[in-house]
């Protein structure tokens, strides 16, 4: 185990990169980089939020009619699942700060389980819509929704929740990587930056869903 808590002698710890002045600066730089990435993520999702605003303004009644095809109980459950995963993610970082590696790993595993639960619920929602033909654009074959161009609602729904779902999957991959590294003892009070910046990403994914849930499931 490469213990990062003891730095006796002249050799810097393994995680320390020589071009930084000290650990503090290294961590701040990593977080700055992550925040700049999150900025691009917000603008990335922002284009779709803009599309949502335009089409909802153009077809307000169609959006209200089409949203009844979504089950708010599924969306609400997913909201709570993601919030719980955000809590466990934040608590995991705290565990590594307090040198409680085992607890930290356990909380990362709980976070991963929550993310998997989210995707399973999403799978049930998607497969039902695929089955009845509530699909984007020209693939839309459902006939039960009144109003102009209900397929537009499902185009935006699948694009926004799909992009969000991809982010959840990517987050799951990163969390698995964190668990593997944490088990090797790479993280502790002196160095837990990968866990922390992954946490920032994960909270942003949660934040996006906090907006997607009322905008799609709770219209009108």
């Amino acid at each position: 185990m490469s213990n990062n808590q003891e730095h006796k002698g002249a050799h810097p710890p393994e995680w320390f990169q020589h071009h930084f002045t000290d650990a503090e600066q290294q961590q701040e730089s990593a977080k700055l980089g992550m925040w700049v990435f999150l900025l691009t993520e917000i603008l990335f999702f922002g284009g779709l939020f803009c599309a949502y605003a335009i089409y909802r303004a153009w077809h307000p009644d169609m959006f209200i009619n089409a949203h009844t095809a979504l089950d708010w109980r599924m969306g609400g459950l997913n909201t709570i699942v993601l919030i719980v995963s955000s809590i466990t993610m934040a608590m995991s970082i705290r565990s590594f700060q307090l040198n409680q590696q085992k607890q930290g790993v356990m909380l990362l595993v709980v976070t991963l389980m929550c993310a998997a639960t989210f995707m399973v619920i999403k799978y049930f929602e998607y497969s039902h819509k695929f089955h009845v033909g509530q699909l984007p654009g020209k693939f839309y074959t459902f006939t039960g929704i009144e109003g102009t161009n209900p397929h537009i609602f499902f185009s935006i729904y699948f694009l926004m929740t799909g992009l969000h779902g991809i982010h959840v999957l990517v987050g799951m991959g990163v969390i698995i990587w964190l668990i593997m590294r944490a088990k090797k003892g790479h993280f502790g009070p002196a160095y837990y930056t990968p866990v922390e910046v992954t946490g920032l990403y994960w909270h942003l994914v949660d934040m996006v869903w906090i907006f997607l849930f009322p905008l799609f499931y709770l219209i009108g």
């Binding site: 730095h7 710890p13 650990a23 503090e24 961590q27 307090l98 009070p189 160095y191």
Partner: peptide, 11 residues
């Protein structure tokens, strides 16, 4: 040296 590689986190 310890200061350099230690980290004062706000927990």
């Amino acid at each position: 040296l310890t200061d350099k590689y230690s980290h004062h986190a706000h927990i």
